[in-house]
């Protein structure tokens, strides 16, 4: 039933270190037949369930589904903005963590330790209310900042591991040609690290999308918040949250598929 296309994978690849981080939906790869099947079953199943519910019981399911898209859009906005910001923070944190400069290294390590030790929900509250005392930041902006600060720390560790996975001879070769360490990083190390970094970043992307549901407590009208609003008005709690859960599931499965396709592309183009 599942055809495995492995003609591309046949050629011997030097084993690349795998970074095992992330709590998002697993990215389906063609090698992992079980997971690949599970992806299909759950994706098709979720869509079929939504379709059935809407067709056979349009009230309230169709009304719920019509109510949610605004929230989906907000969820995406928060996720995409936060991930871009987190990537930037993560790159500098990762570089800081491998820096030989003790102060820079100390700051980066401290940031990672502190952020990883505080629950995201607490961070969200903290940044929202702490920032709120100094400047009036819109809820949306503080939600994005909080998510980025939190995920930046995880990204930093991914960048660090990715950079360290490139053999030290590459750096030596670049430096021996007279490149500064930042030139070597930019032209030689980072382009090679990308391949190792991309899969766990994909995972983080999916994880961040799920965690973005936490911002609903900051008066940001994301998918979950829209669901809560609908449920509070209609008292259809069970039906609403069923729908919300299914929509999240479809989005994350879709995203993880997209990421696995992207990984294949990158893998095919570069050695």
């Amino acid at each position: 039933m599942v055809e495995i296309k492995d003609k591309k994978k046949e050629k011997k690849e030097t084993p690349r270190p795998v970074i095992a981080v992330g709590d998002g939906a697993a990215i389906p790869t063609k090698e992992d037949v079980g997971l690949f099947t599970a992806w299909r079953v759950s994706f098709v199943g979720a869509i079929a369930t939504v379709a059935c519910l809407v067709i056979f019981s349009p009230d309230p399911y169709w009304r719920i589904l019509k109510f949610l898209p605004d929230g989906i859009l907000v969820t995406f906005q928060v996720t995409v903005a936060a991930i871009i910001l987190a990537l930037i923070i993560g790159l500098f944190t990762g570089l800081g963590r491998i820096s030989k400069n003790k102060i820079i290294n100390g700051i980066a390590s401290l940031y990672v330790e502190i952020v990883r030790g505080i629950p995201l929900l607490v961070q969200l509250f903290y940044i929202y209310f702490a920032l709120g005392r100094i400047v009036n930041v819109p809820a949306m902006a503080s939600a994005i900042i909080a998510m980025a600060v939190c995920y930046g720390a995880y990204m930093g560790e991914i960048f660090r591991a990715g950079i360290e996975s490139v053999s030290s001879g590459q750096m030596e070769a670049a430096r021996s040609l007279g490149m500064t360490s930042s030139q070597a990083m930019r032209h030689v190390i980072l382009p090679q690290a990308i391949k190792t970094i991309l899969p766990p970043i994909g995972n983080e992307f999916v994880a961040l999308l799920k965690d973005s549901s936490l911002v609903s407590i900051l008066a940001v009208s994301d998918l979950l918040r829209r669901g809560r609003e609908f449920a509070a008005e209609s008292f259809n709690y069970f039906e609403t949250y069923t729908m919300v859960a299914l929509v999240y599931l479809i989005i994350t499965l879709f995203l993880s598929k997209l990421i696995s396709i992207m990984e294949d592309r990158v893998g095919a183009n570069r050695q």
Partner: peptide, 20 residues
């Protein structure tokens, strides 16, 4: 040191060509 290194070529045991 970068200026000095520009004038010194080096060839390594493990080649260290840039694979990308």
């Amino acid at each position: 040191i970068n200026k000095v290194r520009e004038e010194i070529g080096m060839v390594f045991q493990s080649f260290n060509v840039f694979p990308h």
